[in-house]
Amino acid sequence: MTQAALVEPAVDHGHVEPIAIYFDDLDAMGIVHNARYAVLLERAVTPYWTARGHYFDHNGPSTPDLFHAVREFAITYHRPIRGAGQVLVHFWLDKLGETSAQYRFRFLSRDGATCYAEGRRAIVRLDPATLRPTPWTESAREVATSLLKPEEVA
């Protein structure tokens, strides 16, 4: 990983979140282990939703929309992230359905110049009692809409 200054690149959609890479995220070669990328994406997405009223605390979930499952996670690795430090995660929504959403994401260097990996993650909101898909609340739809690419906003 470079030691460049942390610069959030200008993006016309989605959000860029700086995240920390810790020693325990690394494999024996000193690069981020491939299995850690899903966790690192959560470290980026969670603060965005938390700041907008969707969070877990000692009382449980603040909204029912937090009961969702990952349906698909796909990633393409371009370059290894070496060592501990910070990287940027640019994420946005490609699609927002009645009960599902599809994120796109990129892991970027601190200066935004290098794309380490990119991919997609699809989630489905579930009814806790039946474990069947159920519609997003208006509150979740409002936050999710802020992450849609401009041409996707209805």
Rank of each mutant, 00 (worst) to 15 (best):
F73I: 05
H58P: 01
L131H: 14
E118C: 03
S109P: 08
P128M: 10
T76M: 04
R110Q: 15
P18V: 11
V39E: 11
R36N: 14
I123R: 04
G85F: 10
L96C: 04
T99Q: 02
A122C: 07
A74W: 13
V87F: 03
A129V: 06
H33D: 09
A122M: 09
Y103N: 00
F73P: 02
G97I: 03
A140S: 07
R106F: 00
P64W: 13
R121C: 12
R52Q: 11
L41W: 03
A38F: 12
A101V: 00
P133F: 09
H33R: 08
W136M: 02
G83N: 11
R71M: 04
A129I: 01
A44P: 11
E42A: 05
L26H: 09
N59A: 15
Y22M: 12
H68G: 02
D94P: 02
A140H: 04
R120E: 15
V45G: 05
L126W: 12
R106G: 02
Y48G: 02
D24H: 13
R121T: 06
I123A: 04
E17P: 08
T114S: 07
L26A: 11
G97H: 01
Y116C: 09
P133C: 05
L40S: 07
A28G: 10
T114E: 12
R121S: 13
I123D: 03
A101Q: 04
A122H: 01
P135V: 05
D25T: 08
F23K: 07
F105P: 01
Y22Q: 12
P80C: 06
H15M: 14
Y116E: 09
H15F: 14
F107A: 07
S139E: 15
T114L: 07
S62H: 06
H15W: 13
N34A: 12
R120A: 15
P133G: 06
A38E: 14
R79E: 14
A84H: 08
D24W: 10
T130C: 13
A113F: 07
W49N: 13
A74S: 14
C115W: 03
L40F: 05
V87I: 15
A44S: 12
N59W: 10
F91N: 02
I31L: 08
G60F: 05
G14F: 10
R110F: 06
G83S: 11
K95T: 13
H78Y: 07
T46P: 04
Y22I: 01
H90M: 10
A69F: 08
I123K: 02
D27L: 11
P128G: 12
R106N: 03
